[in-house]
Design a protein around this nucleic acid. Structure first.
Length: 218
DNA sequence: CCCTGATTCGC
DNA sequence: GCGAATCAGG
């Protein structure tokens, strides 16, 4: 396999989307992740911004540093985009998907099924069907989850790989997103932590230590 | 062990 | 230019 224009385009696109080298390699086929990484470097598009996969850190590494683009008129930039309002409505930044609804015979689906215009489902559905062996559709419901965790989840769900049931593996996050009764349903799919069924962000909201409620004595 | 990207270096 | 092997890390 050689790096045709088309393949390079795919590489650039996926890399920009934050896909990992191995995911890209898998998509392209015929190459290993090493090949992808090597190409990425040769293309000079090394460090990305939207860090996903593997080392995600909640810090905006000032990696920007484009050797040009000086910024004269910029007094201060103290704006903190993270951890603020509980649920700021966000227009889906990725205009992809959403345009593939078969012939849904009058689907009122008012409550759920936002996907194309509203923010993505904030919580997994109660009826969510989870792969055998992995029950527990988490219900943080009345629980109090830290704003950080929620923010993290929303962030992650925007970047979900949107896998189908069959695409899940031992190491992909199995957190359901959307309404299983509609087409707007998929699984997070991001790398899950060893042994756990969910990715870091979802583990954060899935396994609550029964926080607020003080445990009774025993 | 699973995974991530970064680098090296023979081809 | 390419990418396997290796390195460094979570």
């Amino acid at each position: 396999m050689s790096w045709t224009d088309e393949r390079v385009e795919t590489l650039k696109r996926m890399w920009a989307e934050g896909q990992s080298a191995s995911q890209i390699a898998k998509e392209l086929g015929g190459v290993t992740r090493n090949a992808v990484i090597g190409k990425v470097h040769r293309l000079g598009l090394s460090n990305r911004v939207g860090g996903a996969g593997g080392k995600e850190e909640d810090e905006e590494t000032p990696v920007a540093a484009t050797p040009k683009a000086a910024e004269p008129p910029k007094p201060a930039a103290p704006a903190e985009p993270v951890a603020a309002a509980p649920v700021p409505p966000r227009p889906t930044p990725e205009p992809r998907v959403a345009a593939e609804r078969p012939a849904a015979p009058a689907a009122p689906a008012a409550a759920a099924a936002p996907a194309s215009g509203a923010n993505v489902t904030p919580m997994p559905f109660r009826k969510a069907i989870v792969p055998a062996g992995q029950p527990l559709p988490p219900q943080p419901s009345a629980n109090e989850i830290s704003p950080e965790a929620l923010a993290s989840v929303r962030e992650v769900e925007k970047r979900a790989r949107k896998l189908t049931l069959m695409e899940l593996t031992e190491r992909t996050c199995k957190w359901p997103i959307g309404d299983p009764a509609t087409e707007d349903f998929w699984f997070c799919g991001l790398p899950s932590q060893a042994g756990k069924p969910y990715c870091d962000a979802h583990v954060g909201v899935a396994f609550q230590p029964m926080s607020a409620r003080r445990d009774r004595r025993r």
